[in-house]
Design a protein around this nucleic acid. Sequence first.
DNA 1: CATGAATGAGGGTTCATTCAT
DNA 2: CATGAATGAACCCTCATTCAT
Lengths: 193, 193, 193, 193
Amino acid sequence: MTAASGSRGAPARRNRGPAAAERNRRALLAAGRDLLATEGLAVPLSAVAKRAGVGQGSLYRHFPSRVALIAAVFEENLDRIEQFVATGERTLDEVFAMLVDQAVASTALVEAINAHRDDAGVARLGRRFAEVVDGVVEAERAAGRLADDITVDDIRLAIGMLAGEIARIDAAERAGAAARARRIVLAGLRPRP
Amino acid sequence: MTAASGSRGAPARRNRGPAAAERNRRALLAAGRDLLATEGLAVPLSAVAKRAGVGQGSLYRHFPSRVALIAAVFEENLDRIEQFVATGERTLDEVFAMLVDQAVASTALVEAINAHRDDAGVARLGRRFAEVVDGVVEAERAAGRLADDITVDDIRLAIGMLAGEIARIDAAERAGAAARARRIVLAGLRPRP
Amino acid sequence: MTAASGSRGAPARRNRGPAAAERNRRALLAAGRDLLATEGLAVPLSAVAKRAGVGQGSLYRHFPSRVALIAAVFEENLDRIEQFVATGERTLDEVFAMLVDQAVASTALVEAINAHRDDAGVARLGRRFAEVVDGVVEAERAAGRLADDITVDDIRLAIGMLAGEIARIDAAERAGAAARARRIVLAGLRPRP
Amino acid sequence: MTAASGSRGAPARRNRGPAAAERNRRALLAAGRDLLATEGLAVPLSAVAKRAGVGQGSLYRHFPSRVALIAAVFEENLDRIEQFVATGERTLDEVFAMLVDQAVASTALVEAINAHRDDAGVARLGRRFAEVVDGVVEAERAAGRLADDITVDDIRLAIGMLAGEIARIDAAERAGAAARARRIVLAGLRPRP
DNA sequence: CATGAATGAGGGTTCATTCAT
DNA sequence: CATGAATGAACCCTCATTCAT
């Protein structure tokens, strides 16, 4: 043994420091996103922890409830949507396309919003989402691409329908069905003769 | 005792006799309809039995699985829709209106169809439902009230979206939201300029 | 709440921490051994957990199935038999004597082997047991203490009969009956005039 | 309608009379024998009733307990053994052969005897069985085909082992294993050099 | 007497949540 | 701070037994 090796009983334990905490959080988010999408909202939290490769206690440290995890997953989505909207004039169709791509997690939010309207974190996300949509809708209306009687609430309703339907459909048919659903809903919002 | 034993039995407390069979079935259906609507698809079957005022064994006798109960609830709805359609020339809007009124159970079917496509009873109901819709769609198309590129599959998709959304909405806002959603979806199916 | 919900969790009353893991495993094995012997193979697993003083969840963590518990109990027996055989030239009679002492668990294995031949763990134990018996039988045959037409399969059959019978007999008469049964079966394997 | 037909409201109900009771009893016995053999001692009594084509209440009328059914099945076996023994000088081997043919039900009795020694009906059957065996053993001993130290209890033990083992073995291997087991046990009872 | 539905206590199993290490 | 075992309530389902018809 070399002179440098410690002579105390305690084995040199890796101190992964606070960086590990952030890594765990990201692993949990990724695992949550995956499993919520493939297994549905009722996936056991223990499965999320296992997939992330962390203990269940750590999951609870980062996300004290199922809703907290769902909200965090959606928050990432929302980040992307906000960035997308912030970097150019965007149409409703484009936002719908993004939402469809994020459909399962969005559905989780939609359901979580309905089931946990009182949850503070969820409420905050709902407001953030509404703001993003508001901006796009205003531009869309200015461009004359919305029927006169369509309100922002209608748009949110439309998004809910779209996301909910996509989430229900089998992965195999999802692409085709999503396109058709998007077309129907968008057509329903356009100006009518 | 070695392998058999089994002194599990329960001395029945009260037994209203087989005359209660039909009454029990109806009570279970009513309880299932109520609780599926208010508590969601995941409502404990034991709660359904308790609400119906019957033992859990009776619930299992009448409905050997959760899907069987859901299917039975929807079958009642389907009966009403079929009768409605059979008694006159009906528009898609009218059928949508009925579906919206039956939203939760319809959603249950939509979800059950997706989750249990292989279940024989569900498949049968799905076909029955499709037939009813087909008839209405044909008439609707003949009257020129559908865009050329809309297929029967699109209609079913639209119904799924509509029912799913209604089911998610709180009872308080349901009436208003349902009307708005119906308008959007129907507009999306109409001929476009 | 719609499909997910799930507020089933139980606030743990007491938690002696992971240090209890090994202690729990041993307590479960001991409880399983006791209760399988006194109550038979159909003993409720909940009774085993209660006797061991652990929650039912812990039982399932350590032994995910009834067969797993039975196999673990027998594995301990097998350990002892292997050690015994490894520490000297042993006769079939001595091995029979050990098996008789372990009769109930042996029966459990015999039954489990028949009922769960496909279970991987059980199959492994069966093979291990067969190897031990093979060795002893070879020595016994070399010493001229077996009839010519007796095969290893016959020995295993004999062991099954012996263990099964002992397991069935009330504790009070077990000692005497075991001795008589052993004598009969061994005599049946000896060279005949 | 002819003059003979009754004009009262009550439809002529078939009165199957007491003959039906006996037919039901026989059907239940046959069903019990079948299912105990193929499904094991833990077979649901409702399955027995269904197989017999009678209501569960009738099963309870004829056999107020699982043990009563098992005992009745064995009693039929015992009848046949008694007849067989009564119609000629019979050897132990022949009786063993009969028992092996009846192995499952015999095992059921063996287990039932151990588990329900206090049950009056079971005790009576046990005594009847012992008497039959006694007679055969006496003749066997007189013919010099038993070792001097073998007692009637030993024979009963041997029968228990044999029956128990046969019952455990898969139907496919039963014939071969039964023959080998019988040979071993009989050899163990024969006079030794 | 027969029928077969009703009953409900348990048994197996899962999983949210806690907490000693 | 992380780990992962422990906990036990609650769920689903089965089935022995009763009893109105």
